[in-house]
Structure formats: structure tokens, C-alpha cells
């Protein structure tokens, strides 16, 4: 317990430092919030346009899909807040040899590298995602039960772990290739799949890959379905939680393997 407390207070310190740094460029800080919100608006506009020409996509109504978009946005922003920048920087740490510094500190190196910079600005956009979900729930005239909300929070946590594990594995590739700046760009393409309703995809290779190998069709679909009561069986929930556990274990294994053959640079 004391370890957990120590890491939590360490994380709070990192957040505080990030906030101070961020406030040095206030206009830029605000403009980034606008950029992210604009892209979210685009996705919603796309869904709005689709539903001008149809009433349902694979059994999903317009507001259910908007709720899904909101959930996907919420998760993506959480990933951006905590991990995205940090994992993208990993290749730079490896290239310059600055990683040595983190390995020498008396804390878990993976923890420090994954959470060093806290992106304050994305908090606004995460809240925006939640607001859109609330709006969609109101349009659907659906009041989720306490159990549904609790389950939703837990499943979002599992979704977050899946995203984190996949991104870590991608970023860890930099130990072998040194360059991996393409990660963010590549990952945005995967995020795009996460906001689409799973039933729009026929059984086949595509669906299998994005359910079992890169579980993008689970991360925001399962929590959203639970929240609106569309979930037919608890199997999908178990699958998402299982994928989160498996993903995390795999990423930890890969991380350790990669560290073992790290030779440092310029020292």
C-alpha cells in the first residue's frame, strides 16, 4: 500500500510540473484544445451525415452511435492525457541515450517513462467526450442504472489498459528500429476503427483481427453497449477484461526483453 501511495504522490508531482510547463505557452495551450475539439466535431458530423441517409447501421441508431463516438473520444483523450506523448518520446530517449537516466532512478522505469508528462489540455476534451455521451443518453431517454455506470467505468479502465499495452508494444519496437515516430500517426488510424459500431463488420478476417489481435472493436464498443443495455451476453465483457490482462502481460514481457538488449548511446 505504501508503494502505491508513493507512486501516486510521485504522479501528482509530475502532473504539477506539466501544468506549470504548459502554462508558459497559454495561447498554444488553448489552440490545441480547439484543434482536438474540431476533429471530434468532424467525426460527429460524419455520423450525422451518414444518418441523414439511413436509420440504422447494423442495428445501431443514430444516438447510440453518437454515444459510441463520445466514449471512443473519452478513451482516446485519456490515453493522450497520460501516455501518448510519453510513449512517443521513447524512441528519442533511446536514440540519445537519455534512457540511462531513467533506468538509474529508484522507481519503476516503465512507470516513469509512461507517465512523465501529463497533458492537461486534453482533460477538457475528455470531458467533452463525456458531455456528448450524456447528450446522447438524454436523446435516447435512457437513464443508466448504478450497476451499468459502475460497469462502464470498469470496462473503460480495461479499454484504457488495452490501448496502453498496444501503444507500449509499438513504442518498444524503437529498441530495435531506433526510429518510431510513426507510432502516433499509425495509432490514430487504429483509433478510427474503435468508434465504429462492431456489428457493421461482417464475420471475417478484419473483424477477427480487430477483436482478438488488436481489440479495437472491443475497447469502446463494449462499455457503450453496457451503458445503453445493448449487451446480449457477459461474454464480451469478459473478453475485453481478458484482453486487457493479456495485453498488459505481453507488453511487460516485451518491455523487459527490449531493456535487456538496450546498449545505450553516446556514452
Amino acid at each position: 500500500m505504501t508503494t502505491l501511495r508513493r507512486y501516486f504522490s510521485l504522479w501528482l508531482d509530475l502532473c504539477r510540473i506539466s501544468l506549470v510547463q504548459e502554462m508558459m505557452f497559454k495561447v498554444n495551450f488553448l489552440l490545441w484544445i480547439v484543434v482536438e475539439a474540431l476533429w471530434f466535431g468532424l467525426q460527429l458530423a460524419f455520423m450525422g451525415v451518414l444518418y441523414r441517409h439511413t436509420d440504422s447501421i447494423g442495428g445501431w441508431s443514430k444516438w447510440e452511435v453518437i454515444l459510441l463516438s463520445g466514449c471512443s473520444q473519452f478513451l482516446m483523450q485519456l490515453v493522450s492525457i497520460v501516455f501518448m506523448t510519453n510513449l512517443t518520446n521513447l524512441s528519442e530517449l533511446i536514440r540519445t541515450g537519455k534512457l540511462d537516466f531513467f533506468l538509474l532512478l529508484p522507481v519503476n522505469a516503465r512507470f516513469l517513462i509512461s507517465t512523465r508528462k501529463f497533458e492537461v489540455g486534453n482533460c477538457i476534451n475528455a470531458l467533452l467526450g463525456l458531455a456528448v455521451m450524456a447528450w446522447a443518453l438524454a436523446e435516447l431517454r435512457h437513464v443508466p442504472t448504478v450497476a451499468q455506470v459502475c460497469g462502464f467505468v470498469l470496462l473503460c479502465g480495461a479499454g484504457l489498459v488495452v490501448h496502453y499495452a498496444l501503444m507500449t508494444m509499438l513504442a518498444t519496437m524503437a529498441f530495435w528500429t531506433v526510429r518510431s515516430q510513426g507510432i502516433v500517426w499509425g495509432y490514430y488510424n487504429l483509433f478510427n476503427i474503435a468508434r465504429l459500431p462492431d456489428s457493421a463488420f461482417p464475420r471475417g478476417v478484419f473483424k477477427a483481427v480487430f477483436t482478438f489481435a488488436l481489440p479495437m472493436l472491443l475497447v469502446s464498443n463494449v462499455p457503450s453497449k453496457l451503458l445503453v443495455g445493448r449487451l446480449e451476453s457477459p461474454r464480451e465483457m469478459l473478453l475485453l477484461v481478458g484482453m486487457a490482462g493479456l495485453g498488459f502481460a505481453l507488453s511487460e514481457w516485451l518491455w523487459r526483453r527490449a531493456l535487456r538488449q538496450y546498449t545505450s548511446a553516446s556514452s
Binding site: 451518414l50 465504429l196 457493421a200 463488420f201 478484419f206
Partner: peptide, 11 residues
């Protein structure tokens, strides 16, 4: 792109 095409096919 493939995702979008699947969605259109479903529509």
C-alpha cells in the same frame, strides 16, 4: 478506409 467501406456496405 476499410472501416468506412464496411460501414457503407452495412448501410
Amino acid at each position: 478506409l476499410l472501416g468506412t467501406i464496411f460501414v457503407w456496405r452495412t448501410i
